[in-house]
Amino acid sequence: TGEEYIAVGDSTAQQVGDLTFKKGEILLVIEKKPDGWWIAKDAKGNEGLVPRTYLEPYS
C-alpha cells in the first residue's frame, strides 16, 4: 500500500536502485525518506528511488 503520485517530469535512473519514469506516469510511493528521495513502484511493478521534486499528489 502507499500513496499515488503523478510524475511532473521525466527522470532517468542515475545509479542502481533508481527508478526511471516518464512525465504523466502514476507512481505508488511506498516510503518517504527525509533526504528527498522516495521509494516508489510503477505500474509494471518496478521499484526504486525517485526524486520527490518530480512528483505531485494524484487525485
Rank of each mutant, 00 (worst) to 15 (best):
D35P: 01
P34Q: 11
L28N: 06
A13K: 08
L27R: 00
T12N: 13
I30G: 02
D42H: 02
G17Y: 05
V16L: 12
K44M: 12
S59I: 13
V29H: 00
S59V: 13
A7I: 03
R52W: 11
E47T: 15
I30A: 02
E56A: 09
P51T: 07
G9I: 15
K44D: 11
W37R: 12
A13C: 12
A43P: 07
W37Y: 12
S11A: 10
V16Q: 11
K23E: 06
W37I: 13
T12R: 11
K41A: 06
T1C: 14
L19M: 05
K33I: 06
S11D: 03
Y58N: 07
D42K: 01
A7D: 00
D10E: 07
A40E: 00
T12C: 14
A7R: 01
I26D: 00
K41Q: 11
S11M: 15
E31V: 12
D35T: 06
R52G: 15
D42R: 01
Q15T: 11
E31I: 10
D42G: 03
S59H: 13
L27W: 01
N46K: 07
G48A: 03
K22P: 02
P51K: 13
E31Y: 11
T12K: 12
Q14L: 13
T53S: 14
T53H: 14
L27Q: 01
G17V: 05
S11T: 07
Y5Q: 01
V8L: 12
E4F: 15
G48L: 03
K22R: 11
L19Y: 02
K44G: 08
P57V: 07
E4P: 14
L49V: 10
P57F: 07
V16H: 11
W38H: 02
T53W: 15
D18E: 15
A40G: 03
K22M: 08
K33H: 11
W38I: 02
P51W: 14
G2R: 09
K33C: 14
V50L: 04
E25K: 01
V29P: 00
A7P: 01
D10W: 04
T53D: 15
V16M: 11
Y54C: 15
R52N: 13
E47R: 09
I26C: 06
T12D: 13
T1Q: 12
G48D: 00
L55R: 00
T20V: 12
T20F: 08
E56N: 05
Y58K: 08
Y54A: 14
S11F: 15
E4V: 14
T12W: 11
V29I: 11
K41I: 14
T53C: 14
E4Q: 14
E56Q: 09
W38K: 00
I39K: 08
N46Q: 08
I30P: 00
A13L: 08
G48N: 01
L28W: 12
G45Q: 04
Q15V: 10
D18T: 14
I6T: 04
K33G: 11
K44S: 12
Q15N: 14
D35K: 03
V29F: 00
P51Y: 15
E25P: 00
Q15I: 10
S11P: 04
Q14M: 12
V29S: 00
E25L: 02
E25R: 00
G48T: 02
E4I: 14
K23R: 10
K44V: 08
Q14G: 11
D18L: 14
L55K: 01
I39T: 07
L55Q: 00
D10V: 04
L49T: 11
E4H: 14
R52D: 11
V50R: 00
R52T: 07
A43M: 11
L55T: 01
I39E: 03
G48C: 04
S11C: 15
D18R: 14
L28K: 07
I39F: 10
V8H: 04
G24S: 03
N46C: 07
E25S: 07
T53F: 12
Y54M: 15
K41D: 01
Y5R: 01
L55S: 00
D35A: 03
K33L: 12
W37P: 05
K33N: 11
D42P: 01
P51A: 11
N46W: 04
G24I: 02
K33E: 04
K32N: 02
L55E: 03
L27C: 04
Q15K: 15
E3N: 08
R52Y: 13
I30K: 05
W37N: 11
K41Y: 06
G2A: 11
L28I: 12
K23T: 08
G24T: 02
S59C: 14
V29W: 00
L28M: 10
G17P: 05
Y54G: 07
E3P: 06
T20D: 09
E56P: 01
N46L: 07
K23W: 05
V16S: 11
E3V: 09
K44Y: 14
E25N: 06
T53A: 14
I39R: 10
K32A: 05
G9S: 15
N46S: 06
D35I: 02
G17H: 06
G45S: 03
Q15H: 13
V50D: 02
Y5N: 01
P34M: 11
K41C: 08
I30M: 09
E31Q: 10
K32D: 02
D18W: 15
V16T: 11
A40F: 03
F21K: 01
S59M: 13
K33Q: 09
R52Q: 13
T1W: 12
I26S: 03
E47Q: 13
T53P: 06
I6M: 08
I26P: 03
S59N: 13
L27I: 07
G17A: 06
E3K: 07
I6P: 02
W38E: 01
P57A: 08
T12I: 13
F21S: 01
G45I: 00
K41F: 06
K32R: 07
I39C: 08
V8D: 02
A43K: 11
G45H: 03
R52I: 09
A40Y: 02
D18C: 15
I6H: 03
I6A: 04
G36S: 04
K22T: 08
W38L: 04
V50S: 01
E47D: 04
Y58F: 12
L28G: 02
G48R: 02
P57L: 08
K22Q: 08
N46M: 07
S59Y: 13
K44A: 13
Q15S: 12
A7V: 06
L19Q: 00
T1A: 13
Q14R: 14
K23Y: 06
G2S: 09
A13R: 15
D10Q: 05
Y58P: 05
L28F: 11
T12Q: 12
K33Y: 10
A43E: 09
I6K: 06
Y5L: 01
V29K: 00
K22I: 08
A43C: 11
V8M: 10
A7Y: 09
L49G: 06
W38Q: 00
Y58H: 10
E56C: 11
Q15E: 10
G17R: 05
V50A: 06
Q14Y: 10
V50Q: 00
D42M: 02
G17Q: 06
E56I: 11
T12M: 12
S59R: 09
E47M: 14
K44N: 13
E47F: 13
Q15M: 11
A13M: 08
K23V: 08
K22A: 07
L28Q: 07
A40L: 04
T53E: 15
Q14V: 12
Y5M: 05
K33D: 06
F21M: 03
R52H: 14
Y54E: 10
P51H: 15
K44H: 13
A40R: 00
E56G: 03
I26T: 05
I30S: 04
E56D: 06
I30F: 07
I30E: 02
D10L: 03
D18Y: 15
I30N: 02
G36Q: 04
K22V: 09
L28S: 06
G36I: 03
V29Q: 00
Y54K: 15
P57T: 05
E47I: 15
L55D: 03
L28T: 10
G2Q: 09
K23L: 06
E56L: 08
V29M: 02
V29Y: 00
W38G: 02
L49I: 10
R52V: 10
D10Y: 04
D35L: 03
G36L: 04
T1P: 11
S59A: 12
T1G: 12
L49H: 08
L55M: 05
G17N: 07
G36H: 04
G9Q: 15
K44R: 13
E25F: 04
L27N: 00
L28P: 00
I39Q: 05
R52S: 15
K23C: 10
G36W: 03
Q14I: 13
